[in-house]
Nucleic acid binder design. Structure first.
Lengths: 106, 106
DNA sequence: AAATTGCGAAACCATTTGATTGCAAATATA
DNA sequence: TATATTTGCAATCAAATGGTTTCGCAATTT
């Protein structure tokens, strides 16, 4: 089982849960109220998100509060940065080609 | 079957393919050479990436060149932006709370 | 014309996913 | 103490995933 940020955000329900918890911590029942899916289905997503280290939880009486570990989201940004760098490299090469064409025109 | 950018980048092989094609277009065989998996396995990923509209292809003789549609990657950035906005809101609320605490101290 | 190359598509398989149902444990309330 | 609430966990199921092998087709080489 792959357990990383990319796996975590692959599911639309999980993306919505991340958005919800970005605003503030919530209990599983409170989260499930926002969706059509059952409490157990949401609970499973919470488990996966926790395994991906995107969520942490903290027991308070019989309630469990799920918190977002916003730092983990940086992994996505890091990958996007890497991607953009490669893309920039491609355009650099394109620039080089264009310049070569220019000098040939002379 | 869900076919969006998030599904596309959920698999590490597909992320690697995106990186490869960020530099320049390649044929399926050329792509497969970079991986341990078979040509057919890579071909399946190419199909999924195409369905997610991250790749386009173009026939040249008996070769097929796969190109990256870099624009599609912006969907991820858009989602991240939305996320960051929500996160900022949380901190704004926290600021409000802190200010209220401050005024109570007086 | 015959053989080779590059490729997608189909059939198949083990594993994972996302969801449901039923249950048990812990806490709160009557 | 009896009951209700909040929750995680195990069993089960259909569908999707990621991979392999085999096949066929079209474009090139020989």
């Amino acid at each position: 089982m792959r357990r990383d940020v990319f796996q975590a955000i692959a599911d639309p329900t999980r993306r919505a849960i991340i958005m919800l918890l970005a605003v503030g911590a919530l209990t599983p029942n409170a989260i499930a109220e926002h969706f059509d899916s059952s409490r157990q289905a949401v609970s499973k997503h919470l488990r996966i998100l926790t395994e991906c280290e995107i969520l942490t939880h903290e027991q308070q009486g019989r309630e469990i509060h799920y918190h977002l570990n916003a730092d983990k989201m940086k992994d996505i940004e890091k990958w996007l940065e890497q991607f953009k760098k490669l893309l920039a490299k491609r355009f650099d090469q394109l620039d080089t080609v264009l310049e070569q064409l220019k000098s040939k025109e002379k």
